[in-house]
């Protein structure tokens, strides 16, 4: 469904994404993890058309979409959400979601009706007439998801939808994301919360300093020395093994 090949992007002298190649198969839930500043959001921005890559290609549903404008990428069925939520503050929840729905429905009434249906899928029906700026963090995260969903995507890029949620809200969000996936949408998500990654994703890609350093199932990833080192620093894997060995003695 999505194929990224040899993608490069640098800002000044900083190489944010370096020769990244990965594939997201239709029907999967794939996670992208890595320490802060690893280039995860940049990679999403490159895939969704917000940034133009310096090199490499992005293929979506068999078509080259490299450097295509975001609204055109979205029209083809690839939509992203933002890590820092970007609600249309003075518009109501219904109007917010309707903006997404208008991509497929020209008529105002249809888009508004569609918005209500989507709101139900993410558990926001009771908030439809609330202005977006008056929502809690958890509700804003859901709104971000609902708007994206209203564009009827085939592939959904979720940028840290769990961040800032308490455990109850997170469980609920995991359920929602799984529901969207069951509805036939392929999901590619950036996530820091390992619990969420473990319970949602079938495959995980690990990014560090702009490069992919590992790929595998969530349980495998957590045991890989290079991944542990990326998060905890050089030599951490060795020390942990030593510590574990010492502890068992």
């Amino acid at each position: 469904m999505l194929e990224v090949r040899g993608l490069n992007k640098s800002f000044g002298g900083l190489l944010a994404v370096a020769d990244v190649s990965l594939r997201v198969t239709e029907g999967d839930i794939v996670a992208l993890v890595g320490p802060n500043g690893a280039g995860k959001t940049t990679l999403f921005a490159l895939v969704s058309g917000f940034l133009r890559p310096d090199g490499g290609t992005v293929t979506f549903a068999g078509q080259d979409v490299t450097g295509l404008a975001p609204h055109l990428v979205c029209a083809r069925g690839l939509v992203r959400t933002f890590q820092v939520v970007q609600p249309f503050g003075r518009l109501s929840v219904r109007e917010n979601i309707a903006v997404g729905a208008h991509l497929r429905f020209a008529e105002r009434g249809e888009a508004m009706a569609r918005a209500a249906t989507v709101a139900q899928r993410v558990g926001m029906s009771h908030l439809l007439d609330r202005p977006a700026h008056a929502l809690t963090v958890a509700a804003r995260k859901r709104l971000e998801l609902a708007r994206a969903l209203a564009t009827e995507p085939r592939l959904l890029l979720l940028d840290e939808v769990m961040a800032g949620l308490n455990p109850t809200e997170m469980t609920e969000m995991i359920r929602i994301v799984r529901g969207i996936h069951d509805g036939g949408v392929t999901v590619f998500l950036i996530e820091h919360v390992m619990q969420a990654v473990a319970s949602l994703a079938e495959r995980v890609h690990v990014l560090n300093y702009g490069r992919l350093i590992a790929e595998g199932a969530p349980a495998e990833i957590a045991r890989m020395p290079e991944v542990i080192e990326a998060y905890l620093g050089h030599g951490a894997a060795e020390r942990m093994t030593a510590h574990a060995a010492g502890g068992s003695r």
Binding site: C74, F88, H102, A148
Partner: peptide, 11 residues
């Protein structure tokens, strides 16, 4: 309200 978000939603 938010130009980037609008663009992301296909506007």
């Amino acid at each position: 309200e938010n130009e980037d978000a609008a663009q992301a939603l296909g506007v």
